[in-house]
Design a protein around this nucleic acid. Structure first.
Lengths: 187, 187
DNA sequence: GTCTATAAGATGATAGAC
DNA sequence: GTCTATCATCTTATAGAC
């Protein structure tokens, strides 16, 4: 991939995580990257194209990191803890939301192209989490009160919500307390 | 309060819940209310004024409904279930987010006036929930694995996140499954 | 209180030179 | 591939008539 194209995606990702899809403009990117905003249209003809590319790249990178963690770590509890740390990472970097949590909140005002990519992120994450919860239950490491799919949805919702509370309250610490409590159910 | 002023707040609230603060304009309100957008400035000089008024009114109404429910219902488990139904309500009405969940996600691009009101909503909600969890624990109805403040934060985060997942996935049902699982911890 | 008119700037996007 | 120039449109907001 083009160096500049990758850079545009990277900057746009940060802007969406901070300001939302409706909160950033090509001009904001220009100011950071040092390219004229007309030039961005050469790489991404429409804002929807850029948004979709950002969401797709975010999802791929996220799933790659999960796959890589899965190779190094066999304990499901630790894997679930690692999963939470990926969300915390966004918060630590300039108070960002999860990209796809942000997009999901805005979904009613999103181009279909973008909405579809955000949806796919959620689906793949829920699938991955469900598998870990299923393994966790099979190991007898902890009893789940719900099926793995529901536990996956509850866990992910807790983390997305924890980001919202942390941002709204301006209190990073509350993310940790929520994440720890959510994870604690599976100890 | 002015009839028209109340109507402007009501319409703006719906628009923010659906599209976000950055996703709606005075023009959108004009189109719905049937008033010229210049006239809106008479009632709310700036968009920040309107946003803050919307958030304040939303919070007041929300807390009133909680207070009123508290009078009719003494069982804390049922109260917590009622609390979740207030969030579900938004989803059922045209796929809306919680107003202050939406604002919290956008907080980095919000005027201070608006951010402060959103924060206050979260604080008052967490206070209210903490009190119910404290009562619940005292009654011996269920043991909490965390302190009431943390349980409150976890429960609220689960519901805010459940709205995000439901919107992003286009699946209202997942909200119910998450809410029920979250509540189930306190059975 | 609501209107028309208008300002001043931002926005996504295109045309055409280099 | 990036630039300048330009477009049509939207945005928040103000001035002044009614």
């Amino acid at each position: 991939m083009d160096d500049i194209k990758a850079q545009l995606i990277d900057v746009a990702q940060t802007l969406i995580q901070k300001l939302g899809y409706n909160g950033f403009s090509y001009r904001d990117i220009s100011a950071i990257v040092g390219i004229r905003n007309a030039s961005i249209h050469y790489h991404f003809p429409t804002k929807a194209d850029l948004g979709a590319a950002v969401a797709a790249s975010y999802r791929e990178r996220f799933m790659e990191r999960l796959a890589s963690a899965k190779e190094d770590e066999t304990d499901t509890y630790n894997l679930l803890s690692f999963y939470a740390s990926l969300f915390k990472e966004a918060l630590d970097q300039d108070n960002r939301m999860c990209l796809c949590g942000m997009l999901s909140a805005e979904v009613s005002s999103l181009p279909d192209l973008v909405a579809v990519e955000a949806k796919r992120f959620l689906e793949e994450n829920l699938d991955w989490l469900s598998r870990q919860f299923a393994i966790h239950a099979n190991n007898g490491d902890g009893r789940l009160s719900e099926g793995p799919e529901t536990e996956a949805a509850l866990y992910m919702a807790s983390l997305q919500g924890a980001l919202i509370l942390a941002k709204g309250l301006g209190d990073t610490g509350i993310f940790d307390r929520i994440a720890e409590a959510a994870l604690g159910r599976y100890r």
